[in-house]
């Protein structure tokens, strides 16, 4: 108990130091730039290059997607790998723990009107919400290049629809779920698809992830290059989406299968 108190004192002291340093930085020192200033170092060098040349060079109207999928393609590739590894580690840590046995599914006719989580209203409304979330996820995936959206968000949305479907209704208990191993395999397929997209241009004499050399079109006309860039970015987005979806479902399943809610 005594130890706890001294720890709280230490923490409070640390907070005061942080606040004091921050106040000094904001009020006195000018090394933090003013918000909204266009001439700050963060807004000056490479960001301006991205904005002015993204449409010309990558043919992607959403500049964030252009940066993510084209200019920094390697970065996103290894980011996807990090995600996959985190799901793998979660599964490895918890693999030896035995699963909590599920309650046996009762007679469906009896069980129809008792929802396990959230009651009848949740049970009825999620049937309307889930298809809309799925449609929106697919829309965000395919429009990530020309409007707001992208692979990460689409994957999170689709996994969110699965999550709602998994935890809300009661009569689905033990049915219609993806196994954790399957989810991990799906995630690995996503990361693999990304790598394949990177390797494909190398058969056509290009570099790794050079979309203009994808071996789909034959001519080197400008129109064809636009199409190839679009195809390459879309393939990467699909890979990222599948990977993020698989990772979220895998983590959810691994943790949910081994959690005893009655405890």
């Amino acid at each position: 108990m005594k130890e706890n108190k001294s720890r709280k004192k230490l923490a409070a002291g640390l907070i005061i130091v942080i606040i004091a340093v921050g106040t000094a930085a904001v009020k006195i020192g000018a090394f933090l730039p003013t918000i909204g200033d266009a001439d700050t170092p963060a807004n000056s060098y490479v960001a301006n290059y991205y904005i002015t040349n993204a449409v010309k060079e990558t043919h992607s109207y959403n500049i964030v997607t252009a940066v993510l999928a084209d200019y920094r393609g390697f970065d996103t590739l290894f980011e996807t790998c990090v995600l996959f590894l985190s799901a793998l580690v979660t599964m490895m840590v918890l693999f030896g723990k035995e699963k909590v046995p599920k309650m046996p599914v009762k007679n469906l006719a009896e069980d129809k009107y008792s929802a396990a989580f959230g009651g009848d209203i949740m049970d009825a409304s999620f049937r309307i919400v889930v298809p809309i979330i799925l449609i929106y996820g697919i829309y965000v995936l395919f429009h990530g290049e020309i409007s707001l959206g992208g692979g990460f968000q689409a994957g999170a949305l689709i996994a969110c629809a699965y999550l709602l479907d998994r935890i809300i209704p009661s009569i689905r208990m033990g049915r219609g779920k993806i196994k954790e191993e399957t989810a991990l395999i799906i995630a690995s397929m996503g990361a693999f698809f990304y790598v394949i997209t990177g390797i494909l241009p190398m058969f056509n004499g290009g570099n790794f992830l050079e979309f203009a050399k994808l071996p789909f079109g034959s001519s080197l006309a400008a129109e064809s290059i636009v199409k190839l860039h679009t195809a390459g970015i879309l393939m990467i987005e699909v890979g990222v989406t599948v990977c993020v979806m698989g990772v979220i479902i895998a983590i959810l399943e691994v943790v949910l299968e081994r959690t005893d809610f009655d405890e």
């Binding site: 960001a47 500049i63 252009a66 999170a156 990772v247 979220i248 943790v255």
Partner: peptide, 28 residues
């Protein structure tokens, strides 16, 4: 500036992965 947005997009998703690993360790 699109650059912080692109970087933080990946950071958010990675924070999800670290949360998953943390939860697994807590359960052990």
């Amino acid at each position: 500036n699109p650059l912080p947005h692109a970087l933080m997009l990946t950071a958010i998703v990675v924070s999800l992965g670290t949360t998953g690993v943390g939860l697994a360790l807590l359960m052990r």
